[in-house]
Structures are given as C-alpha cells and as structure tokens.
Amino acid sequence: MQKIGLIAIWISFGLWGVVGIVSISSLSISQKAISIPILLLVSEIAFWLGVVLVGKTVADHYREQLNPRRLWVVIKMFWQRWF
C-alpha cells in the first residue's frame, strides 16, 4: 500500500508540472480556465490519498525532506561547492 501511496504523491507533483505546461500552451483561455482548476483539484486529491495510504511516518519524512529551509541549505551547499 505504501508504494501506491508514494506513486499517488509523485503523480500529484507531476500534475503541478502539467498545470505549468497548460498555462503556457496554445489552448484557448476558456479551455485553460477549465483544465487548470480540474488539474489542481485532482492533484490535491491524489496527494492526500497518497498521504493516507503511506501513513504518518512516511509523510513526515517527505515533509522534512521537502522543507524549503532544508532545500535552501542544500542549494547553498551545492553553489559553494561548484562556484
């Protein structure tokens, strides 16, 4: 069940990328206005379904790994190492 939950969480992240692609695509404004909220809603549902399936400990681990403060430290370390 945890693998299915992780897949659902990653699908939700992927749908956010699709939202970005749809927003710059050649679709009409009305098509964008319909598809973007639907994609966001499906993304949120997939994310929370995934969180329920993986459990609290795994969700806390991913929350810690995706913390913006931690990501900023990793980016700074990368920058200092290579530049």
Rank of each mutant, 00 (worst) to 15 (best):
S25K: 14
L41V: 13
H61F: 15
P37G: 04
W16Y: 11
L41Q: 04
F47T: 02
V74D: 02
N67W: 09
I29E: 09
V73N: 13
S23D: 12
V51L: 10
H61G: 09
N67H: 12
S26W: 13
I21P: 09
V19C: 14
Q80N: 08
S43P: 05
L15W: 07
G5R: 09
S28E: 11
F13P: 04
I38C: 10
F13R: 03
K76W: 04
G50W: 06
S12C: 08
W16P: 02
V74G: 05
K3Q: 12
V22L: 05
M77G: 02
I36T: 07
Q31C: 05
D60R: 15
V51D: 03
W72N: 01
S43W: 04
L15R: 03
V74T: 10
G5T: 15
S30Q: 11
L39C: 03
L53R: 06
K56G: 05
I7M: 12
W72D: 00
I7C: 04
S25D: 10
R69N: 15
I9W: 02
F47L: 13
A33S: 15
R70M: 01
I7R: 06
D60E: 15
I29T: 11
V22T: 09
W16I: 09
V18A: 03
S25W: 14
L6I: 08
L41C: 12
W79Y: 14
E64C: 00
E44F: 15
S43N: 04
G50M: 06
V58P: 00
S30E: 13
V19D: 08
I75H: 01
I11M: 14
W79E: 14
N67D: 15
L53Q: 07
T57K: 14
I21Q: 12
V18M: 02
I45Y: 09
G20R: 01
F83E: 15
I9G: 02
F13A: 11
